[in-house]
């Protein structure tokens, strides 16, 4: 029986031998014997020895298991890669969401605040806006922008005169709001004079292009080219464009004042803001026209010039200078 059992364990027993073993094993008392023979067989095997035919099967099994774990490793690499990409994707997404969220929040929760810069009479201010654009603000002028400037908008409100050197940003055009006219630019140098008391808004373009936009209809009045001056009539929206020597209109930022064919009433305003001096004048002289340039002259010198080129007389009354028609000179002219 021992030999038979060994043959069975080795897989070399014939069917009839197996049948014999089955009959024998069906008797319960033989099972313990069978078990001890099994252990004996196992002990008798050389270490690591695999029965005939089993060697090949074992190698194949090793290969399959290796292949499986390799595939799994590859799978896990793919999964890792997937998760890596997924992570990057979600990171980008979350940043996007955060930016969207916070920017959305900022417009909801952060109060809009406005910054205003004022150049007092007698002063010229130079301002750097948050986007790096430079603004020279003429005397008696005010420029305002809100706290979203350079993030969500590039809008400035202007009353008075300013010279802009605008930093380029193709996505966010800079808009100068002069109430009756918007000046829209991407990046250029230009001068805007929008004094509330003047009949027209004056835009002089030194470099690049600007668009003049109707603030109500949001339509473009005109596209200016460099070297042009546009005078926009507040009264009838008429636009007059001509070529000019731009430096005449931008020189004020260097401290010069160019008066070019302007009525006395406008000249006086200019002088008031430039020299911080109050004037009063007679109605009959308000349309006298002047053309001159002021650089560093004192106010007295300018008034003397005015007295020379037109029949006016200046009288100092306390803090105010009164401009009157010079009867004597008028008589001379009449003669």
């Amino acid at each position: 029986m021992r030999t038979l059992i060994f043959k069975y364990l080795e897989g070399s027993a014939t069917d009839s031998e197996k049948a014999e073993l089955l009959q024998w094993l069906r008797k319960k008392e033989n099972r313990i014997v069978f078990h001890s023979y099994k252990l004996e067989w196992r002990k008798g095997l050389k270490n690591g020895q695999i029965t005939v035919g089993g060697e090949e099967s074992w190698n194949r099994l090793q290969e399959k298991l290796w292949q499986k774990s390799y595939n799994r490793w590859q799978e896990s690499l793919k999964t890792q890669q997937f998760f890596r990409y997924a992570a990057i994707f979600f990171f980008a997404l979350s940043i996007g969401t955060a930016v969207w969220h916070f920017s959305g929040q900022s417009s909801r929760n952060i109060q809009e605040t406005t910054t205003s810069v004022i150049a007092e009479n007698g002063q010229i201010s130079k301002i750097e806006l948050p986007d790096g654009s430079l603004v020279w603000l003429n005397s008696g002028s005010r420029i305002s922008y809100n706290n979203f400037y350079a993030e969500q908008n590039r809008q400035v409100e202007l009353s008075g005169e300013a010279y802009f050197d605008v930093a380029k940003n193709a996505e966010l055009p800079l808009v100068v709001n002069c109430n009756d006219l918007y000046v829209r630019v991407l990046g250029t140098k230009f001068n805007v004079a929008a004094y509330s008391w003047e009949e027209s808004i004056d835009v002089v373009l030194e470099e690049g292009t600007v668009e003049l936009v109707n603030p109500v209809a949001k339509t473009t009045f005109s596209e200016m080219e460099s070297g042009q001056r546009a005078q926009f009539s507040k009264e009838n929206s008429a636009l007059q464009v001509n070529d000019v020597n731009t430096s005449r209109f931008t020189a004020w930022k260097e401290g010069m004042i160019n008066i070019y064919d302007q009525p006395l009433k406008d000249v006086v305003k200019r002088l008031e803001i430039r020299y911080n001096q109050e004037f009063i004048y007679d109605k009959e002289i308000e349309d006298f026209r002047y053309t001159f340039t002021i650089e560093n002259e004192r106010l007295e010198e300018i008034i003397r010039v005015m007295e020379q080129i037109t029949p006016v007389k200046a009288i100092q009354q306390n803090d105010v200078i009164e401009l009157k028609i010079d009867e004597e000179k008028m008589r001379k002219v009449d003669r």
Partner: peptide, 26 residues
């Protein structure tokens, strides 16, 4: 490997009772 080498012959014998093809048994 120990389990494999001790059980392989008998497992093969069992399969052969039902499956004739050696490759299928394997």
């Amino acid at each position: 490997k120990e389990v494999f080498r001790l059980l392989y012959p008998r497992m093969r014998g069992y399969c052969k009772l039902f499956i004739a093809d050696d490759n299928e048994v394997e």
